Deep mutational scan, measured.
Amino acid sequence: NQASVVANQLIPINTALTLVMMRSEVVTPVGIPAKDIPRLVSMQVNRAVPLGTTLMPDMVKGYA
């Protein structure tokens, strides 16, 4: 199973992502692939993302 990107903490709306905010985990449904973590750094979330939430492409500005 492919690992997805999961929030390692509460990420407030419009926050630029950093490595410490994200972890990889095998979850259902599948979200953004963990291999894309380096690409996500500095991108902003367009909503508040609670701890443990799988990041989906529509949550990150400029990803999709």
Rank of each mutant, 00 (worst) to 15 (best):
E25N: 05
N8G: 14
L10M: 13
V45S: 06
A34K: 06
M43D: 04
A64W: 06
N46A: 08
M43V: 04
V41R: 04
S42M: 10
I11K: 01
S4R: 01
L51D: 13
A3D: 08
Q44L: 08
I32A: 02
G31W: 02
A16R: 05
V5I: 10
I32W: 02
T53Y: 10
Q9A: 08
P29V: 06
A7G: 03
M22V: 11
E25I: 08
G31H: 01
M22A: 00
N1E: 15
L51P: 10
A16C: 05
M43S: 07
R39E: 09
E25A: 15
P38Y: 09
A64F: 07
G52D: 12
N8F: 05
V6I: 06
L19E: 09
M59P: 00
I32T: 00
N46W: 09
L40K: 01
Q2A: 08
S24P: 10
Q9L: 11
A3T: 06
G62M: 11
V60M: 06
G31Y: 02
M43E: 09
K35H: 11
L51S: 10
L10F: 13
L19W: 13
N46K: 08
A16E: 08
D58W: 07
M43L: 15
M56G: 05
Q44C: 03
V26R: 09
A34F: 07
N14R: 07
M59C: 04
T54E: 01
S42G: 14
S4C: 03
V5T: 13
L17V: 04
A48L: 11
Q2S: 10
L51F: 11
N14A: 05
A64C: 04
E25S: 07
N8L: 04
Q2L: 15
Q9V: 14
P33S: 10
N14P: 01
R47L: 13
D36P: 00
G31N: 01
R47P: 02
A48F: 15
R23F: 04
A16P: 14
R23G: 10
N46M: 11
Y63T: 04
V45Q: 00
V30L: 12
P38S: 08
K61D: 07
A48D: 12
A16W: 12
V60L: 08
A64L: 15
V6H: 02
E25L: 06
A48N: 11
I32C: 03
P33I: 08
K61G: 08
P12N: 09
V26A: 15
G52Q: 04
L17W: 01
T54M: 04
A3C: 04
A16I: 11
L55W: 00
I32P: 01
T53G: 15
T28E: 15
V6W: 02
R23V: 08
T15V: 06
Q44W: 07
Q2P: 10
P50R: 12
V60P: 01
I11P: 02
G52N: 14
I13T: 11
P50G: 14
L55R: 00
R39N: 09
V20D: 15
R39L: 11
P38H: 13
G31L: 02
I13F: 14
R47H: 10
N1G: 11
M22R: 00
A16H: 07
P33T: 11
R47S: 11
S24T: 12
R47K: 07
V60F: 06
L55K: 01
S42W: 07
R39D: 07
I37D: 01
L55E: 00
I32N: 00
V27K: 09
T53N: 08
T15N: 05
R47A: 09
V26I: 14
Q9G: 07
A7H: 01
V45P: 03
S24A: 13
G31F: 01
V5R: 01
V45R: 00
T28A: 14
A3W: 15
V45W: 00
M56A: 09
K35L: 09
Q9W: 09
V60T: 01
V5F: 02
V6C: 03
T54G: 03
Y63I: 04
G31P: 01
V26D: 12
G52M: 06
I11D: 00
S24R: 11
P50L: 13
V27Y: 02
N1A: 11
K61C: 04
Y63H: 05
M21T: 03
V26Q: 08
D36M: 08
G31I: 02
A48I: 15
Y63N: 04
P12K: 07
G62V: 05
T18E: 09
I11Y: 02
A48V: 13
V26K: 09
M59E: 03
V27Q: 06
L17M: 10
Q2R: 08
V20W: 08
R23Q: 07
L40H: 00
Q9P: 01
Q44M: 14
V6M: 10
A48G: 10
I37S: 05
R39V: 07
V20P: 14
I13Y: 07
G31K: 00
R39K: 14
L40T: 01
Y63V: 04
I11A: 01
S24D: 08
Q2E: 09
Y63A: 04
L19P: 14
S42Q: 11
T54S: 04
T18K: 08
P57C: 04
M21Y: 05
T15H: 09
D58S: 12
P12F: 05
S42A: 14
N8V: 11
S4M: 02
T54F: 02
S42D: 10
S24H: 09
K35F: 15
D36T: 06
M22N: 01
P29Y: 04
I13C: 03
P33R: 06
V60Q: 00
